[in-house]
Design a protein around this nucleic acid. Structure first.
Length: 302
DNA sequence: GCGTCCAGGTCTACC
DNA sequence: GGTAGACCTGGACGC
């Protein structure tokens, strides 16, 4: 195995660990956290699906990456690795307007101070959508099982039981019965197959969503046109596309809202939506950060 | 160990 | 547009 030391700078106020722990993606492979060494890793796919392990370390105004691969990396491959990692950490996202909005209310001034607000995402929209479908209508532990099975059974092996995330082709080449039995994705299996087949064939260009010029309401409808993506899943995929107009409610955030705002009393979803409506186009992000603020008190909240 | 019940979003059929 | 029932799994619970 050959190691390369890479690095890239981060914007002022950027918080590596607050971005890593922005939501549960950091705990799903091919992402992984090494608490003992204080590093965050990712198995990336290079061209021809050759996997490379990228071990990231926070160094203040920059991120230092130890990239490990079976072959010496070319300059072009190193550049692509940095590009993918920066996309995952949302370093391409301009946060000044959101932080200015947060500064206007004492309730949210902790956000820019904590360097919070960048939500970790996968290198590809395809991976984000597959994982989001795997979070629907099940416990988090089952989501972990499904994603683990997808990587170990359909991804490319690296070493020590580490695998890349499967390509659309790799999933599309399997049967419904295989997904149900081996991935444990149950009734979601036909949704995953249809998605993978449409992306693999070129009929569906998910990656264009990150640069879509469409209005957010139209993009929301486009996301929901994917089988298996309802209001919750589409609202949260939009957050990973840099659009924060939807709350993406599920049972966990609802119970957090009841705990924080209604003394535990259940209220309608429309009541929650009205509560955040005055916060405009960033309401989905304010909502998520408020629900998860308790995570920001520890370096490793879970 | 086995059976039953329930929670968790989305889809489809129906009104 | 709103709603009921089905989908599938894992965990909790009772026996």
């Amino acid at each position: 195995m050959i190691s390369h030391r890479l690095q890239f700078s981060v914007p002022p106020g950027f918080s590596f660990w607050r971005t890593v722990y922005s939501h549960g993606w950091c705990a799903l492979p091919p992402f992984s956290i090494q608490k003992e060494s204080g590093t965050f890793s990712r198995i990336l796919s290079l061209e021809d699906e050759v996997p490379a392990e990228c071990i990231m370390r926070d160094a203040g105004n920059k991120i230092i990456v130890l990239a490990r691969s079976q072959f010496p990396l070319t300059g072009d491959q190193k550049a692509r690795i940095k590009h993918q990692l920066k996309a995952c950490l949302r370093l391409d996202e301009e946060m000044s307007e959101f932080y200015a909005e947060a500064q206007r209310s004492p309730r949210f001034r902790w956000i820019p101070k904590a360097g919070a607000g960048r939500m970790l995402r996968a290198p590809t929209v395809f991976e984000d959508v597959v994982k989001m479908i795997c979070t629907t209508n099940c416990s988090w532990s089952l989501t972990e099982v499904m994603v683990q099975n997808l990587t170990t059974q359909l991804g490319k092996g690296f070493e020590d039981g580490k695998y890349s995330f499967p390509t659309p082709d790799a999933i599309a080449g399997k049967s419904d019965a295989f997904l149900r039995k081996n991935i444990r994705s149950g009734y979601r299996s036909p949704y995953l197959l249809e998605l993978a087949e449409n992306v693999a064939s070129g009929r569906l260009d998910l990656e264009s969503w990150r640069s879509s010029p469409d209005a957010t309401t139209d993009l929301f409808k486009t996301v929901k046109s994917v089988k298996g993506m309802g209001d919750y899943a589409a609202g949260n995929i939009l957050k990973l596309l840099g659009r924060y107009d939807y709350l993406g409610l599920d049972s966990w955030v609802r119970s957090r809202f009841y705990h924080l705002h209604t003394n535990g009393r259940k209220v309608r979803d429309t009541t929650i939506e009205k509560h955040y409506a005055p916060l405009g186009k960033f309401r989905g992000l304010f909502f998520w950060l408020e629900m998860t603020r308790h995570w920001y008190q520890r370096k490793f909240p879970f």
